[in-house]
Protein backbone atom coordinates (compact mmCIF):
# COMPACT_ATOMS: atom_id res chain seq x y z
CA UNK A 1 0.00 0.00 0.00
CA UNK A 2 2.75 2.46 0.95
CA UNK A 3 4.43 1.66 -2.34
CA UNK A 4 1.21 2.38 -4.21
CA UNK A 5 0.89 5.75 -2.51
CA UNK A 6 4.52 6.63 -3.22
CA UNK A 7 3.98 5.61 -6.82
CA UNK A 8 0.91 7.87 -6.93
CA UNK A 9 2.91 10.75 -5.47
CA UNK A 10 5.70 10.22 -8.01
CA UNK A 11 3.28 10.06 -10.94
CA UNK A 12 1.36 13.04 -9.53
CA UNK A 13 4.53 15.14 -9.39
CA UNK A 14 5.46 14.26 -12.96
CA UNK A 15 1.93 15.11 -14.08
CA UNK A 16 2.23 18.20 -11.90
CA UNK A 17 4.65 19.61 -14.47
CA UNK A 18 1.91 19.17 -17.03
CA UNK A 19 -0.48 20.94 -14.66
CA UNK A 20 1.94 23.88 -14.50
CA UNK A 21 1.71 24.04 -18.28
CA UNK A 22 -2.08 23.86 -18.27
CA UNK A 23 -2.12 26.66 -15.69
CA UNK A 24 -0.19 28.87 -18.12
CA UNK A 25 -2.85 28.60 -20.80
CA UNK A 26 -6.03 28.00 -18.83
CA UNK A 27 -5.51 30.40 -15.96
CA UNK A 28 -2.83 32.93 -16.92
CA UNK A 29 -3.79 33.40 -20.57
CA UNK A 30 -7.43 32.40 -20.03
CA UNK A 31 -7.67 30.08 -23.04
CA UNK A 32 -8.44 26.36 -23.04
CA UNK A 33 -5.56 24.98 -25.11
CA UNK A 34 -6.23 21.43 -26.24
CA UNK A 35 -2.95 21.05 -28.11
CA UNK A 36 -1.45 19.71 -24.87
CA UNK A 37 -3.17 16.40 -25.63
CA UNK A 38 -0.86 16.13 -28.60
CA UNK A 39 2.28 17.73 -27.23
CA UNK A 40 2.41 15.59 -24.09
CA UNK A 41 2.68 12.57 -26.38
CA UNK A 42 5.17 14.40 -28.59
CA UNK A 43 7.31 14.85 -25.49
CA UNK A 44 7.01 11.21 -24.52
CA UNK A 45 7.65 10.01 -28.07
CA UNK A 46 10.66 12.25 -28.63
CA UNK A 47 12.29 11.26 -25.36
CA UNK A 48 11.56 7.56 -25.91
CA UNK A 49 13.10 7.50 -29.37
CA UNK A 50 16.20 9.37 -28.23
CA UNK A 51 16.69 7.37 -25.05
CA UNK A 52 16.26 4.02 -26.75
CA UNK A 53 18.94 5.18 -29.17
CA UNK A 54 21.31 5.78 -26.30
CA UNK A 55 21.00 9.54 -25.91
CA UNK A 56 21.41 10.93 -22.41
CA UNK A 57 18.00 10.96 -20.70
CA UNK A 58 18.12 14.60 -19.52
CA UNK A 59 19.20 15.73 -22.95
CA UNK A 60 16.28 13.76 -24.39
CA UNK A 61 13.93 15.60 -22.00
CA UNK A 62 15.34 18.90 -23.17
CA UNK A 63 14.77 18.00 -26.81
CA UNK A 64 11.23 16.93 -25.90
CA UNK A 65 10.72 20.33 -24.29
CA UNK A 66 11.83 22.06 -27.48
CA UNK A 67 9.43 19.87 -29.48
CA UNK A 68 6.67 21.07 -27.14
CA UNK A 69 7.69 24.70 -27.67
CA UNK A 70 7.27 24.19 -31.40
CA UNK A 71 3.84 22.60 -30.89
CA UNK A 72 2.80 25.62 -28.81
CA UNK A 73 4.15 27.96 -31.47
CA UNK A 74 1.95 26.29 -34.09
CA UNK A 75 -1.19 26.68 -31.98
CA UNK A 76 -0.31 30.28 -31.15
CA UNK A 77 0.23 31.18 -34.80
CA UNK A 78 -3.02 29.51 -35.86
CA UNK A 79 -4.78 31.51 -33.17
CA UNK A 80 -3.12 34.92 -33.41
CA UNK A 81 -2.11 35.22 -37.06
CA UNK A 82 -4.79 33.13 -38.79
CA UNK A 83 -7.44 34.27 -36.26
CA UNK A 84 -8.68 30.74 -35.61
CA UNK A 85 -10.48 30.50 -32.24
CA UNK A 86 -8.11 29.17 -29.58
CA UNK A 87 -10.13 26.04 -28.89
CA UNK A 88 -10.16 25.06 -32.54
CA UNK A 89 -6.50 25.98 -33.01
CA UNK A 90 -5.66 23.60 -30.16
CA UNK A 91 -7.73 20.81 -31.67
CA UNK A 92 -5.98 21.27 -35.03
CA UNK A 93 -2.54 21.04 -33.44
CA UNK A 94 -3.60 18.06 -31.37
CA UNK A 95 -4.86 16.26 -34.46
CA UNK A 96 -1.76 17.10 -36.47
CA UNK A 97 0.40 15.94 -33.55
CA UNK A 98 -1.11 12.46 -33.76
CA UNK A 99 0.42 11.88 -37.19
CA UNK A 100 3.65 13.59 -36.24
CA UNK A 101 3.98 11.53 -33.07
CA UNK A 102 3.55 8.34 -35.10
CA UNK A 103 6.26 9.60 -37.46
CA UNK A 104 8.57 10.31 -34.54
CA UNK A 105 8.07 6.88 -33.00
CA UNK A 106 7.69 4.92 -36.22
CA UNK A 107 5.20 2.69 -34.40
CA UNK A 108 2.48 3.05 -31.80
CA UNK A 109 4.55 2.06 -28.81
CA UNK A 110 8.18 2.28 -27.73
CA UNK A 111 9.21 0.37 -24.62
CA UNK A 112 11.83 1.82 -22.30
CA UNK A 113 12.72 -1.22 -20.20
CA UNK A 114 14.81 -0.56 -17.10
CA UNK A 115 15.73 -4.22 -16.71
CA UNK A 116 16.61 -7.05 -19.05
CA UNK A 117 19.04 -7.26 -21.94
CA UNK A 118 17.97 -4.11 -23.82
CA UNK A 119 17.51 -1.95 -20.76
CA UNK A 120 17.90 1.80 -21.08
CA UNK A 121 19.18 4.53 -18.81
CA UNK A 122 16.42 6.96 -17.75
CA UNK A 123 16.62 10.08 -15.58
CA UNK A 124 15.55 7.91 -12.67
CA UNK A 125 18.31 5.31 -13.10
CA UNK A 126 21.18 7.25 -11.46
CA UNK A 127 18.99 8.18 -8.49
CA UNK A 128 17.81 4.62 -8.16
CA UNK A 129 21.39 3.34 -8.26
CA UNK A 130 22.43 5.94 -5.71
CA UNK A 131 19.63 4.89 -3.34
CA UNK A 132 20.63 1.25 -3.72
CA UNK A 133 24.25 1.96 -2.93
CA UNK A 134 23.32 4.18 0.01
CA UNK A 135 21.07 1.55 1.56
CA UNK A 136 23.46 -1.27 0.69
CA UNK A 137 22.86 -4.93 1.49
CA UNK A 138 20.23 -5.63 4.11
CA UNK A 139 18.58 -8.56 5.77
CA UNK A 140 15.13 -9.09 4.28
CA UNK A 141 13.89 -10.41 7.59
CA UNK A 142 14.99 -7.47 9.71
CA UNK A 143 12.32 -5.26 11.25
CA UNK A 144 13.39 -2.28 9.14
CA UNK A 145 13.27 -4.19 5.87
CA UNK A 146 9.91 -2.69 4.79
CA UNK A 147 11.35 0.81 5.03
CA UNK A 148 14.51 -0.12 3.17
CA UNK A 149 12.38 -1.85 0.53
CA UNK A 150 10.66 1.45 -0.06
CA UNK A 151 13.89 3.43 -0.16
CA UNK A 152 15.32 1.26 -2.93
CA UNK A 153 12.04 1.04 -4.86
CA UNK A 154 11.75 2.61 -8.32
CA UNK A 155 8.80 4.66 -7.14
CA UNK A 156 10.81 6.27 -4.39
CA UNK A 157 13.58 7.48 -6.70
CA UNK A 158 10.96 8.69 -9.18
CA UNK A 159 9.37 10.63 -6.35
CA UNK A 160 12.71 12.22 -5.44
CA UNK A 161 13.30 13.29 -9.04
CA UNK A 162 9.71 14.56 -9.24
CA UNK A 163 10.09 16.65 -6.09
CA UNK A 164 13.30 18.28 -7.29
CA UNK A 165 12.02 18.99 -10.81
CA UNK A 166 8.69 20.39 -9.61
CA UNK A 167 10.41 22.65 -7.08
CA UNK A 168 12.94 23.90 -9.63
CA UNK A 169 10.25 24.58 -12.25
CA UNK A 170 7.95 26.26 -9.73
CA UNK A 171 10.75 28.58 -8.62
CA UNK A 172 11.51 29.44 -12.26
CA UNK A 173 7.80 30.11 -12.88
CA UNK A 174 7.60 32.31 -9.80
CA UNK A 175 10.60 34.29 -10.96
CA UNK A 176 9.43 34.53 -14.57
CA UNK A 177 5.98 35.87 -13.80
CA UNK A 178 7.50 38.54 -11.62
CA UNK A 179 9.61 39.92 -14.46
CA UNK A 180 8.49 42.65 -16.85
CA UNK A 181 7.83 40.07 -19.53
CA UNK A 182 5.93 37.80 -17.15
CA UNK A 183 3.80 40.71 -15.93
CA UNK A 184 3.00 41.62 -19.53
CA UNK A 185 1.87 38.04 -20.20
CA UNK A 186 -0.32 38.00 -17.09
CA UNK A 187 -1.89 41.29 -18.12
CA UNK A 188 -2.59 39.86 -21.58
CA UNK A 189 -4.76 37.18 -19.97
CA UNK A 190 -6.63 39.96 -18.16
CA UNK A 191 -7.21 42.72 -20.66
CA UNK A 192 -5.67 42.71 -24.12
CA UNK A 193 -6.90 46.21 -24.93
CA UNK A 194 -5.03 47.64 -21.96
CA UNK A 195 -1.91 45.68 -22.79
CA UNK A 196 -1.78 47.06 -26.33
CA UNK A 197 -2.33 50.55 -24.95
CA UNK A 198 0.85 50.00 -22.92
CA UNK A 199 2.77 49.29 -26.09
CA UNK A 200 2.95 45.52 -25.71
CA UNK A 201 2.22 43.16 -28.59
CA UNK A 202 -0.50 40.82 -27.35
CA UNK A 203 0.28 38.50 -30.25
CA UNK A 204 3.84 38.05 -29.02
CA UNK A 205 2.70 37.50 -25.43
CA UNK A 206 0.21 34.82 -26.49
CA UNK A 207 2.89 33.11 -28.59
CA UNK A 208 5.39 33.08 -25.72
CA UNK A 209 2.86 31.83 -23.20
CA UNK A 210 1.47 29.00 -25.35
CA UNK A 211 5.00 27.94 -26.25
CA UNK A 212 6.07 27.77 -22.61
CA UNK A 213 2.88 25.94 -21.72
CA UNK A 214 3.36 23.23 -24.34
CA UNK A 215 7.08 23.05 -23.61
CA UNK A 216 6.33 22.19 -19.98
CA UNK A 217 3.67 19.70 -21.05
CA UNK A 218 6.05 17.92 -23.44
CA UNK A 219 8.75 17.87 -20.76
CA UNK A 220 6.24 16.26 -18.43
CA UNK A 221 5.37 13.73 -21.16
CA UNK A 222 9.06 12.85 -21.48
CA UNK A 223 9.34 12.11 -17.75
CA UNK A 224 6.04 10.22 -17.62
CA UNK A 225 7.16 7.95 -20.48
CA UNK A 226 10.36 7.15 -18.61
CA UNK A 227 8.47 6.48 -15.39
CA UNK A 228 5.93 4.15 -16.96
CA UNK A 229 8.74 2.60 -19.07
CA UNK A 230 7.10 3.17 -22.44
CA UNK A 231 5.82 5.87 -24.76
CA UNK A 232 2.50 5.23 -26.37
CA UNK A 233 0.60 7.05 -29.10
CA UNK A 234 -2.47 7.04 -26.81
CA UNK A 235 -0.78 8.50 -23.74
CA UNK A 236 -2.13 12.01 -24.30
CA UNK A 237 -5.79 11.12 -24.60
CA UNK A 238 -7.75 12.79 -21.83
CA UNK A 239 -4.65 14.55 -20.50
CA UNK A 240 -6.23 18.01 -20.61
CA UNK A 241 -9.00 16.80 -18.33
CA UNK A 242 -6.45 15.30 -15.96
CA UNK A 243 -4.56 18.60 -15.99
CA UNK A 244 -7.73 20.56 -15.28
CA UNK A 245 -8.79 18.11 -12.56
CA UNK A 246 -5.43 18.53 -10.82
CA UNK A 247 -5.50 22.30 -11.23
CA UNK A 248 -8.98 22.65 -9.78
CA UNK A 249 -8.46 20.17 -6.94
CA UNK A 250 -5.37 22.17 -5.98
CA UNK A 251 -7.22 25.45 -6.12
CA UNK A 252 -10.04 24.11 -3.97
CA UNK A 253 -7.69 22.56 -1.39
CA UNK A 254 -4.89 25.14 -1.22
CA UNK A 255 -6.37 28.24 -2.82
CA UNK A 256 -5.02 30.92 -5.11
CA UNK A 257 -4.58 33.86 -2.74
CA UNK A 258 -0.99 34.46 -3.81
CA UNK A 259 0.98 33.19 -6.77
CA UNK A 260 3.27 31.20 -4.46
CA UNK A 261 0.28 29.49 -2.97
CA UNK A 262 -1.14 28.88 -6.42
CA UNK A 263 2.05 27.13 -7.51
CA UNK A 264 1.97 24.88 -4.47
CA UNK A 265 -1.69 24.20 -5.21
CA UNK A 266 -0.83 22.94 -8.70
CA UNK A 267 1.64 20.35 -7.42
CA UNK A 268 -0.59 19.31 -4.52
CA UNK A 269 -3.61 19.07 -6.81
CA UNK A 270 -1.79 16.80 -9.23
CA UNK A 271 -0.59 14.55 -6.40
CA UNK A 272 -3.97 14.40 -4.69
CA UNK A 273 -5.62 13.53 -8.00
CA UNK A 274 -3.23 10.60 -8.45
CA UNK A 275 -3.76 9.41 -4.91
CA UNK A 276 -7.53 9.50 -5.42
CA UNK A 277 -7.13 7.49 -8.61
CA UNK A 278 -4.81 5.01 -6.91
CA UNK A 279 -7.30 4.55 -4.08
CA UNK A 280 -10.34 4.01 -6.30
CA UNK A 281 -8.31 1.59 -8.40
CA UNK A 282 -7.26 -0.28 -5.28
CA UNK A 283 -10.90 -0.34 -4.27
CA UNK A 284 -11.60 -2.20 -7.49
CA UNK A 285 -12.57 0.35 -10.14
CA UNK A 286 -11.88 -0.91 -13.66
CA UNK A 287 -9.13 1.01 -15.49
CA UNK A 288 -11.50 1.59 -18.39
CA UNK A 289 -13.85 3.57 -16.15
CA UNK A 290 -11.09 5.98 -15.11
CA UNK A 291 -11.74 8.60 -17.74
CA UNK A 292 -15.44 8.71 -16.88
CA UNK A 293 -14.51 9.06 -13.22
CA UNK A 294 -12.07 11.88 -14.02
CA UNK A 295 -14.62 13.72 -16.16
CA UNK A 296 -17.18 13.50 -13.37
CA UNK A 297 -14.61 14.73 -10.83
CA UNK A 298 -13.77 17.74 -12.99
CA UNK A 299 -17.45 18.51 -13.57
CA UNK A 300 -18.05 18.35 -9.84
CA UNK A 301 -15.06 20.58 -9.07
CA UNK A 302 -15.96 23.12 -11.75
CA UNK A 303 -19.48 23.43 -10.38
CA UNK A 304 -18.21 23.66 -6.82
CA UNK A 305 -18.61 27.45 -6.59
CA UNK A 306 -22.24 27.03 -7.63
CA UNK A 307 -22.80 24.24 -5.14
CA UNK A 308 -21.12 26.27 -2.38
CA UNK A 309 -23.38 29.19 -3.22
CA UNK A 310 -26.46 27.00 -3.05
CA UNK A 311 -25.44 25.59 0.31
CA UNK A 312 -24.73 29.06 1.67
CA UNK A 313 -28.14 30.23 0.52
CA UNK A 314 -29.77 27.22 2.12
CA UNK A 315 -27.94 27.89 5.37
CA UNK A 316 -28.79 31.58 5.43
CA UNK A 317 -32.40 30.72 4.66
CA UNK A 318 -32.45 28.24 7.56
CA UNK A 319 -30.87 30.81 9.84
CA UNK A 320 -33.40 33.34 8.64
CA UNK A 321 -36.25 30.97 9.48
CA UNK A 322 -34.68 30.16 12.82
CA UNK A 323 -34.37 33.84 13.57
CA UNK A 324 -37.99 34.35 12.56
CA UNK A 325 -39.07 31.49 14.84
CA UNK A 326 -37.20 33.01 17.73
CA UNK A 327 -38.95 36.26 17.00
CA UNK A 328 -42.33 34.53 17.17
CA UNK A 329 -41.51 32.84 20.42
CA UNK A 330 -40.71 36.13 21.98
Amino acid sequence: MVNIIIGAIALGLLWGIMTLGVHLSYRILDVADLSVEGTITTGGATAAVLISNGVNAWLACLVALVAGLIGGLVTAILHTKLKIPALLAGILTMTACYSINLRIMGKANIPLPTTGSNKVETVFTPVHDLMKSLVGEYDENSSMAWLLDILVSKNFSAMLVGIVVVIVLSVIMYWFFGTELGCAIRATGNNQQMVRAQGISTTLMIIICLMLSNGLVAFSGALIAQYQAYADIQMGIGSIVIGLASLIIGEVLIGTKTFKRNLVALAVGAVVYRIIIALVMAAGMAANDLKLFTAITVTFCLSLPLIKNGINKLISKRNGEAAANIGEEE
Binding site: T179, E180, L181, R186, A187, N190, N191, V195, Q198
Partner: peptide, 22 residues
Protein backbone atom coordinates in the same frame (compact mmCIF):
# COMPACT_ATOMS: atom_id res chain seq x y z
CA UNK B 1 -5.79 44.57 -15.52
CA UNK B 2 -8.31 43.45 -12.88
CA UNK B 3 -6.43 40.44 -11.52
CA UNK B 4 -3.22 42.34 -10.99
CA UNK B 5 -2.16 44.55 -8.12
CA UNK B 6 -2.45 48.34 -8.23
CA UNK B 7 1.33 48.66 -8.19
CA UNK B 8 1.72 46.04 -10.93
CA UNK B 9 -0.67 47.98 -13.14
CA UNK B 10 1.31 51.14 -12.54
CA UNK B 11 4.56 49.32 -13.30
CA UNK B 12 3.11 48.10 -16.60
CA UNK B 13 2.20 51.68 -17.49
CA UNK B 14 5.55 53.04 -16.35
CA UNK B 15 7.16 50.94 -19.09
CA UNK B 16 4.76 52.01 -21.83
CA UNK B 17 6.51 51.67 -25.16
CA UNK B 18 9.56 49.98 -23.70
CA UNK B 19 10.71 46.45 -24.42
CA UNK B 20 9.68 44.00 -21.71
CA UNK B 21 12.78 42.31 -20.38
CA UNK B 22 13.54 39.66 -17.81
Amino acid sequence: AANMEIQENLALAMRRGQRRTL
